[in-house]
Amino acid sequence: MTQTAPTPPLAAQTATAAEPVIQMKNVSKWYGQFQVLHEVSLDVAKGERVVVCGPSGSGKSTLIRCINRLEVHQSGDIFVNGLEMTDNVKNIDKIRRNIGMVFQNFNLFPHLTVLENLTLGPMLTRQMKKSAAEELAMHFLRKVRIPEQAQKYPLQLSGGQQQRVAIARSLCMEPEIMLFDEPTSALDPEMIKEVLDTMIELAESGMTMIVVTHEMGFARTVADQVVFMAEGRKIEAAPPEEFFGNPREERTRAFLDQILKH
């Protein structure tokens, strides 16, 4: 029996505020009789970059999907910016507006052009004027370095380009927190780098990020905190040097052995 590790002291190097923007306390979730999350606790400070890793089925995606309530947790508390995540639709909306999310399969809207994908959110939820929304969209398209693709449809782009569009789409909502759910898992190897580069730039700009990924190189260079999950439990959380150099838990070691072998 692995005990849920106590929340480790924040090793945030760039964290500026003491008050965490995301607080998860003993969060549990069940699918029917199957428990996917076992009392997971996690604090994320403003500007902190957290990488969550673990074998498939370990609940790491479910964990971050609870943060913007794509999944509903059944016990424990989640606070985002001090707002408690209950079924209060107003709070949910406030929380979601503050959180951008990037999916494994991009989930771009195939019937809209790249530009329309980007302007939809700002226009509908932030009530921006079309011209302003387009200006904003082009700004972020330039940031992810594909402004020339604005008029194309998502399916006309490569996987890497689509994922960068998806990142830009989230950024157009000007969120304070970005969630990445295995953003490079659906990509061909030669496209992974362009997406990771975009994410690194984003991290350097001070964005609060939680990234579920198997890219250990990314975790090493970017993360302030690496969280290892298995079977719905948080096994270990530590700064990357400590996590990779001297993992405390047996299972972390086994996992790292396996994933770093090749």
């Binding site: 509903v72 059944q74 016990s75 209950t86 079924d87 209060n88 639709v89 107003k90």
Partner: peptide, 17 residues
Amino acid sequence: RAAKPPARRLKDLIYSE
């Protein structure tokens, strides 16, 4: 394992999903 009690105050109730 019911979801957390959804509402405590009237305002919470109105906004409860």
